[in-house]
């Protein structure tokens, strides 16, 4: 491991190694064994499907690192698709993109302000989820709309079977990971997630950090919606609903602790890839989608059990059998 990255960054990356291995192995074996998997259609389907979830999960991951949760991301995705497919301005799409960005930041900031003011994140983002969903339905009450041609061209640009939006989304996750692991903002983020009270006592700017975290989540969710339009070519006021829970699943699979303060955003990449692979492979094998839900649920349980084992926090009946690296005397949830 290069010395460019800090020690904490490296320590946080370590638990994500197994999921990288599992995911890469899964890709390699699928590639070797399944003929339809190797087709260009399938590759671009898989990657284009991953792009929006990568972005949304990156935002969700930042929020979960603070010990919070953002349930509104699904509605924000829907709203973004609806805005993108509305006729606005000169028809070039510039105004659409600007509004998508503004909407995401505004909604996210509102969430952040609410949480910083002491409203429970679950309650706060549940409320904005409803408000944003209603707003999206008011703008467009059924799927449709037209996406500006020049914008659509950019969103569907592809190098062979690799969509541009996938590469950008991948880049965004890496940048978000560096932002959270190598900067002062990132350190405060982890501190808030580890112990909100502790961070406040240490005179860290916890409120500002929370607001920025939620604003980033809103922004990334709305960009996720923008990228999604490259797949569905239209707006849909309900299309994002599944993203709220899928993004949480991807973040947890990626090894970020649900109580906050632990994990690395880079783990989101194999997390999202593994989720997409499960769907893709079970589809190609002709397995009914009900089994896909069951499989994903089981993978999540197994993964979390393994992370716990790796962290050494093996407890039975409240008795800690192993002290472990990640354990701390009082691992209470942050404020």
């Amino acid at each position: 491991m290069s010395a460019v990255l800090g020690a904490t960054t490296r320590a946080n990356l370590k638990p994500t190694i197994p999921i990288w291995i599992v995911t890469i192995l899964a890709v390699v074996v699928a590639f070797a064994v399944s003929t339809p998997f190797r087709t260009g259609t399938n590759a671009s389907s898989l990657l284009l499907g991953m792009a929006p979830l990568l972005l949304v999960a990156a935002g969700q991951g930042i929020v979960i690192l603070t010990g919070g949760i953002d349930l509104s991301v699904g509605s924000v995705v829907s709203l973004a698709t609806v805005i993108t497919a509305s006729s606005l301005g000169d028809g070039s799409g510039t105004l659409n993109v600007a509004l998508v960005v503004v909407a995401g930041v505004v909604i996210g900031t509102a969430n952040g302000v609410g949480v910083a003011a002491g409203i429970n994140p679950l309650v706060m983002t549940l409320a904005t989820m409803g408000i944003v969903k209603g707003g999206a339905l008011l703008i467009m009450d059924s799927p449709g709309g037209t996406v500006p041609a020049s914008l659509l061209e950019g969103l569907t640009w592809s190098f062979g079977s690799v969509p541009l939006t996938f590469l950008i989304s991948l880049g965004v996750v890496v940048v978000a990971w560096l932002l959270t692991s190598e900067t002062r903002f990132g350190h405060t983020l982890y501190a808030v997630g580890h112990s909100g009270i502790g961070a406040r006592r240490a005179a860290l700017r916890t409120n500002r950090t929370l607001i920025v975290a939620y604003a980033l989540s809103g922004l990334l969710a709305s960009l996720g919606g923008l990228v999604l339009v490259g797949r569905v070519f239209s707006g849909d006021p309900l299309i994002g609903d599944a993203f709220s829970l899928d993004s949480i699943t991807a973040v947890l699979l990626g090894g970020i602790a649900v109580v906050g303060g632990r994990g690395a955003l880079l783990g989101i990449i194999p997390g999202v890839l593994l989720l997409a692979l499960v769907d893709n492979l079970l589809n190609l094998a002709g397995v009914f989608s009900y089994y896909q839900y069951i499989t994903k649920g089981m993978i999540l349980i197994v993964a979390l059990a393994l992370y716990n084992a790796a962290g050494g926090e093996l407890k039975i009946g409240g008795v800690r059998l192993l002290p472990g690296r990640g354990s701390k005397p009082d691992a209470g949830a942050p404020a």
Binding site: A30, V33, A285, L306
Partner: peptide, 24 residues
């Protein structure tokens, strides 16, 4: 952890890949 990981990977992939070959 490593053993389980490898096992899971093989199981997942074998399960999916196997049947998709026969049906393609």
């Amino acid at each position: 952890l490593l053993a389980l990981t490898a096992l899971a990977a093989v199981a997942v992939v074998a399960g999916c890949g196997g049947s998709s070959v026969s049906s393609s």
